[in-house]
Nucleic acid binder design. Structure first.
Lengths: 185, 185
DNA sequence: TACATCATGTAAGGCGTTACATGATTCA
DNA sequence: TGAATCATGTAACGCCTTACATGATGTA
């Protein structure tokens, strides 16, 4: 999997500029695939020269002009090829898990505040996801039809919600373990 | 967070060679921080020249000789400094989530087999974790005391178990969504 | 006038992946 | 004899992060 594919999906959902894509990668898409604006501008250039996307200069009033990108035929083909190619589950990276195991060789109690900070971050994200769910999926679609784009976006959001809930529960478990070590049971 | 810190934790738990570390990164530590043997050898060299680890040549019978690494004083200090430095939650990367959203622009039904493959991979891992839990934490420690290293390792393993369970449940949710789109409810 | 936001980039360096390479020992 | 496992590396290339850079417009 590459950043290209995430950009293609985002541009198919809605065309936009590099700047707008960068903003989307701070929310929405960015919750399961991150990228900085530097990466995005570089990759967009390559995608343009490969004919995956098309650019259109858009003059704006009260704002700097922008380049609006949209997916070209070759980009659609590339996405389709990637979608049908099997991929392995991504490797997980949890620095906090390394810290928890490392704390046994330092001061376990000192880790409590950090675990609490992470817990807060995950609670904030959960709140944000739940608000987004109510806003975007709270009412049935106006036309009543089953919209694949909408249903699949919702399924991904439910994944984010499940992930945050799991993390909060696990961090509580870690906090309880640290407390037990502190008091000696 | 860097690979160095994960290596320090692993070597504190038990000294070993680069090869042995690479094997541990395929299991245990590798479930929340991955690394290839090429990376490990390169980083070990740097850690040695920085005085973070010490090397000892170990002659073996019936096997090639190996270099056994253990953590030096400076390595312990480096780990301690990192443990006490606040870190942000790692960014998540789920290619399957990108595919799920991308499937709306291709053939959603074609994704079913891939989701099932991922589900199988997560089920296998869960089975493996649960077996490890019974093996390593099934009985109370022989001396009955509260061992920080053991308790924290167990807490991290419980995190892995919770993660796999959450993923399996979410993949079932995605499969149900894809089926609904296929039959048109 | 100063700060925030919109908008787009370059450059350096480190991290990670893929491919290539070597050689010993054990077991079928 | 051949395959698997143990053991240790080098090299090339690409991805990602961090830092630096510029300039327009809107708002307090």
């Amino acid at each position: 999997m590459a950043l290209e594919h995430a950009i293609l999906v985002s541009l198919l959902e809605k065309p936009g500029s590099g700047y707008e894509l960068a903003r989307r990668f701070e929310r929405s898409i960015g919750y399961f695939w991150t990228a900085s604006h530097q990466q995005i501008y570089r990759v967009l250039k390559r995608m343009e020269s490969d004919g995956w996307v098309e650019v259109r200069d858009v003059a704006q009033y009260g704002r700097p002009d922008k380049k609006e990108y949209s997916v070209a035929g070759r980009g659609r083909d590339a996405l389709s090829a990637w979608l049908n190619e099997p991929t392995e589950p991504e490797s997980v990276r949890h620095d906090l898990a390394v810290k928890v195991r490392g704390a046994a060789f330092d001061d376990p109690t000192a880790l409590i505040s950090q675990v609490e900070r992470h817990r807060q971050a995950h609670t904030d994200r959960l709140t944000h996801y739940l608000a987004g769910e109510t806003r975007d999926f709270g009412d049935p679609p106006p036309d009543g039809r089953l919209d694949a784009e909408r249903e699949l976006q919702h399924a991904v959001l439910r994944g984010g919600i499940a992930y945050e809930r799991m993390m909060i529960a696990w961090l509580d478990d870690v906090l309880a373990t640290l407390a037990r070590l502190d008091t000696g049971r």
